[in-house]
Structures are given as C-alpha cells and as structure tokens.
Amino acid sequence: MTDSPQRTPLIAAGLLMGAGLGGFVDGIVLHQMLQWHNMLSGKLPPDNLVAAKVNMYWDGVFHAGVWVMTVLGLRLLWAVGRRADVPWSGRTFSGALVLGWGLFNVVEGLIDHELLGLHHVYEYTDNKLPWDLAFLALGVLQLLGGWALIRAGRADGLTRAAG
C-alpha cells in the first residue's frame, strides 16, 4: 500500500470521542449537578419522585448512547494508531475533539430542544429560548474553534511511514 497521507480517520476518531465526551459533560453537569433539565423533562416534568425516576431512566439511556459513541471513537483511534498513512497530530485530534463536542451541542440542541421539545436547556423559567440559543451559540463557537485547530494541524507530521 502506498496510500497518500490522509487525516480524516484521525478526525473521525476525534469527532466521535468529542461528541461522546461532550454528551457526558451535558449529562453530568446539566442533568445531574445543576439539574437544569433531564432528557424527557419537557414532556414529563420531574415534579414528583416517580416522574424524577422515570426521567432518571431516560438519562441513563442517553448516557449509554454517548458511552457507545465514546468507545467507538476510542476503537477508531486505536485503529488509526496502527496506520502509517495517517499523520499523528495533536492539533488535528484536539481540534476534532472540540469539533465533535460542538457537533453534539448543535445536533442535540436542534433536534431535542427545538424540533422535538424533549427538553430545554434551562427549564425553571418561562422563557426557555434564550438559554437554548446560548447553548447553540456555544456549539457554533466550538465548531469554529475545532475547525481552526484542525486546519492548523495540516502542517503536522506527514506520515509515520517516513519516520
């Protein structure tokens, strides 16, 4: 195999790990520590023990999903580590992590918050939209930052085969 250097496998691994870890940040910080929302709290407000425990179950399903995503990313990263045609770049990988986190925030924000209304970022207010928009804005900033880091990593290491 005389493949030309390709960065997309490392970017893909970073995307999945970043999105998965970003999902864990959402679950740990916003669901559990700050308790601003739960996965289904827009449909089933956790205003009694039973409703809170039902929401807890669906939070667990969500965490299982982002766990699978993180493990898949780790598996891809392992595969990338064995490929000589993929440049090993810290900037590319960390950029992909940030990009993945931003993608998670934007995709989850658009689908769950805006389209389906499963929950909103901060539910202890009558006007939920500003919080949802701020969450989306954070995601867009992460996308831009991640993209910039990935671009900066273009100059990093050609191929490990040459080493």
Partner: peptide, 11 residues
C-alpha cells in the same frame, strides 16, 4: 427513537 436520534446521527 427520538432520544437516541442525535447519537445515531453523530455515530
């Protein structure tokens, strides 16, 4: 389905 849709799309 709805809860895991974003996860599935990202994967």
């Amino acid at each position: 389905l709805w809860l895991l849709l974003p996860v599935a799309l990202l994967i």
